[in-house]
Simulated assay, not measured.
Amino acid sequence: MNIKKIVYSSLVTGLLLIGGLLPFAAPASVVIAGTRVIYNAQDSEITIKLSNNGEKPALTQVWLDKGDPKADPSRIDLPFTITPPMSRIDPAKAQTLRIAYTGEPLPQDKESVFWLNMLEIPPKPMADEAGANHMQLAFRSRIKFFFRPAGLKGSVNDAPGKLTWHVADKGGKQVLQVTNPTLYHVTVIAAAVGAAKFDDGDMVAPGGTLDIPLKGHAAAAAGTKVQFTTLNDYGGPVQGEGVLQ
């Protein structure tokens, strides 16, 4: 639920062969190991594995962005290098990416978040398929990339338990306000106050407050229990319980 797969529209036009009935090419075959990346500042570099689970070679391009999925990769300036930025991965093979922090200033008093993008470009049709009509799509996977400075106070594992919760009225609709007093990002994938629920997933930044819409009506009395689920560093769900303030 933290991986966003997007049809990369700027390439689709060039990859479409227009015809009568267009059979779709196979879905994305290259996968990223993990659903999020944690870069600890004390590490000289980190490695990430890309695996081609498909039956054909694939060309991949990898880059980081600041949160805008439409940003032009050639214009993004971030203090990280990725090697290799482009690679061909044969079927049943893998490619190891190396990401290194180049040292330009980033906040040292809280965690920073970026997005790691992997664009998979399918191969051209085989010679025996040249006469057929095909629709080929380039797929992009996008996962969170956290830069964690050294010496941050508190523990990332304790951060979900420090969230505070309120029920508020916004425009005639109830929202569950979650405030994060910690120095770490916390991804909330589900929350419930009685019969009122939230299951769309969202992330609250360090020191930030997030309004999440509720389905159903929640009792707003202080002390009412809030059941919630967050994600840990490995992308696994962690159950938690809080109370309305």
Rank of each mutant, 00 (worst) to 15 (best):
T102V: 11
L116E: 06
G67C: 13
E104Y: 05
T60E: 08
F80Y: 05
T102Y: 05
D90C: 08
I143T: 05
L106A: 05
V62R: 03
L97K: 04
M126H: 09
E55Y: 03
K93S: 07
N40D: 10
D158A: 13
P84H: 09
Y101E: 01
I89G: 02
K144C: 07
G103H: 03
D109G: 05
K110H: 12
P57C: 10
I99M: 11
P57G: 14
D43Y: 12
W115K: 07
F80T: 00
K70T: 12
Q95C: 02
N133E: 11
A138I: 11
P160E: 00
D90H: 14
A127P: 08
I48K: 11
L163K: 07
Q136N: 15
V113F: 12
I143D: 00
G67R: 06
R140V: 02
P85G: 04
V62T: 10
E55F: 04
F80P: 03
V156F: 11
W165Y: 02
V37T: 12
E45S: 15
D158T: 10
V62N: 00
K144T: 09
P57H: 13
P123Y: 05
S74V: 14
V156I: 14
A159L: 02
D77G: 06
I89E: 02
I143W: 02
D158P: 02
A71Q: 07
A130Q: 13
P84S: 08
P149Q: 08
Y101W: 07
A132W: 06
P85Y: 01
K70I: 05
Q136W: 09
L163C: 00
S155G: 10
V37K: 04
